[in-house]
Write a protein that binds this DNA or RNA. Structure first.
Lengths: 196, 196
DNA sequence: CATAGAGTGGACCGGACGGTCAAGAAAGGT
DNA sequence: ACCTTTCTTGACCGTCCGGTCCACTCTATG
């Protein structure tokens, strides 16, 4: 029951924050939507910022699940990247169905907001982004070994390129309220890999 | 004097908002920093949202100046894009000096935030992004004519690619508090142009 | 110089906000 | 059965917020 309440608070907060921003969602909003009282919220979280961090963490957990699934090695490394992009696009499209407007990247959007909330929040955010990048970097390394991309490129730098591009596409998708912008992702990321 | 006050309010608001978000800056903050009283602010702007729109407009004006200068046709089209990227990177680095933390793209960041402020705000934002994209698209068209990029690519789609990538790099630069991420911009955008 | 209207000062408002608290209800170990 | 710890409740607080109001002061114009 206890863990359940905490989880419900975070999940509800996540839904409210996604598509908007942490600042635009009040603790009252969260409590109302979760059917919980302020005291409970502040029993589990020392501050609103802490709740924000938990939301970010939950987003990362969900993204991790998608990453693990997409990057399973039953297909080649480049196909894994493609598969992840499909999942990512589907995720945004589904969110648009549910909320009526296209959200940005659940991690990137919060990352930009939390970066201004002090140095430790920023450090946390960058650790998560690094973990995400590693999935790309590993696949790229493997693709280099297979001769599917230019072996001279730096895997880490290429991974950063891919992540940046994906973040940019998600941001434009949000601004244009059009998840179809992500349809270009596969081809775009291929260009950034200098394939042979 | 009148225009002067209005301009000062917007300029100050811009400085406060840049690097954070509109939501995190209060009208009191703006008034204090501008040495102005609430009555004056609400004499010029009917609401805080209107002030936000004016800030966005100012950012676009400043960006336009950079664009016009960078895209002057005294050099080839691809060199213009490079020149713009230099200016953009310099802009972010300068802002970091001034505020102590790396801001995101002055247009992209606000665009993402304002997109959730109703349909008309979003439409305004997309018009500005389209205008920005046009600078890229025109240069790409010219580069195609000169045979500097693959003539088969669609200029508009390529321009979207470039803008998305730039936005993504700016977002990561903000999250990592490291403007050097933009150093890769030139090479990255080249890859996205499928040069011959 | 009279007057109108733009611009400014600054007090004020209602409500929303993040956060607290004390007391009670469950849960859980012994 | 008992007590301790973990939750939950719901009223409450001080502050900050966006926004209003009205009296005042400039300044441009006729």
């Amino acid at each position: 029951m206890a863990r359940d309440t905490r989880d419900r608070i975070v999940a509800v907060a996540r839904d409210l924050v996604h598509g908007t921003s942490l600042a635009q969602v009040s603790t009252d909003d969260v409590c109302r939507a979760a059917g919980v009282h302020k005291g409970s919220l502040y029993h589990f979280f020392p501050s609103k910022d802490a709740l924000g961090a938990a939301v970010f963490e939950l987003n990362w957990t969900m993204m991790s699940a998608v990453l693990v699934q997409a990057f399973a090695d039953d297909v080649g490394p480049l196909a894994r990247i493609d598969r992840f992009l499909d999942s990512f696009a589907a995720m945004l499209a589904m969110m648009r169905e549910k909320t009526g407007s296209t959200p940005g990247c659940p991690l990137g959007g919060l990352a930009a907001e939390l970066a201004a909330h002090g140095e430790d929040a920023r450090a946390h955010v960058t650790r998560v982004l690094d973990a995400w990048k590693r999935y790309f970097a590993d696949a790229i390394s493997e693709a280099k070994g297979r001769g599917e991309v230019d072996p001279k490129i730096d895997s880490g730098a290429a991974a950063t390129r891919l992540l940046a591009h994906l973040q940019g596409l998600a941001l434009l998708a949000q601004a244009y309220d059009d998840p179809r912008l992500l349809l270009h992702a596969k081809a775009d990321l291929r260009m950034l890999l200098a394939p042979k």
